[in-house]
């Protein structure tokens, strides 16, 4: 078998708040292989967002090792981290995080601007990404002219446009009604079928149940790692040996 796309080895992230140590992540280890679809589940405050920030190279661990696509992230300087995010990671946020004054197309082009691609190529690739999420006829709309579901599709197109090795989504359906949320979940399933690697944080059992694999966190530790269906229904899952 090939090397894993992601290796998290005893990842630890501590905060000091008012002189008190907060163990947001306390030695989390797992691998993710190319093409996997993994849900991160757990109660509020269990460390899901902290983990996503580390996986997304937005934050650096207090201890532990993180290897992404063969690169040991811990050794990288700030510029290199920015470049790594640009090439390897597509973010989808709960609150969409679209630029309000820019059109859907301009929003989707943004990662390619920071990659230094020429205008024509940016345009073509952004159009293709918007078509692939079903927004071929909304390219020149601004976020406030789009529904919540459409906004999240724009954000997903923006995450896809740079052809990253993983898509990271933190509560991507958290701000959507259940029907629109379901559309987005179907889009993720479709992306998984097309071979994309997806990691998404959710506290919705329904969504977690759809994922082939789920990692349950509690108090900054891995409580279980197994098939999403089992984990969601059992509320626990296999505890790693």
């Amino acid at each position: 078998m090939t090397a894993p796309l992601i290796t998290a080895d005893r990842l630890t992230r501590h905060y000091v708040v008012g002189g008190e140590l907060v163990r947001a992540l306390d030695g989390v280890s797992f691998d993710v292989r190319e093409g996997e679809w993994v849900a991160i589940v757990g109660q509020s405050g269990s460390g899901k967002s902290t983990l996503m920030n580390l996986l997304g190279c937005l934050d650096t661990p207090t201890a532990g090792r993180y290897v992404l696509a063969g690169t040991d992230v811990g050794t990288l300087a700030d510029d290199a981290l920015a470049d790594l995010r640009n090439r390897e990671i597509g973010f989808v946020f709960q609150t969409f995080q679209l630029l309000a004054r820019a059109t859907a197309l301009a929003n989707v082009e943004l990662p390619l601007v920071y990659r230094g691609l020429p205008r024509r190529e940016r345009r073509e690739r952004a159009e293709a990404a918007l078509r692939s999420v079903g927004l071929a006829n909304r390219m020149h709309h601004r976020p406030n002219e789009l529904s919540g579901g459409q906004r999240q599709r724009v954000a997903i197109a923006r995450a896809l446009v740079g052809e990253p090795s993983i898509l990271l989504a933190d509560e991507p359906t958290g701000n959507l009604d259940s029907q629109t949320g379901e559309e987005i979940v179907r889009l993720f399933a479709d992306l998984h079928a097309r071979g994309h690697t997806l990691i998404l944080v959710t506290h919705e059992p329904r969504l977690a149940a759809r994922c082939p694999r789920a990692i349950r966190l509690m108090d900054g530790r891995v409580l279980g790692d197994g098939p999403g269906g089992e984990l969601a229904s059992a509320g626990g899952g296999r505890v790693p040996a």
Partner: peptide, 16 residues
Amino acid sequence: TREIGLRRALGARRRT
């Protein structure tokens, strides 16, 4: 601030 955070997440360097 949020826009800056987003741009950084999408690959903007500090210099940018």
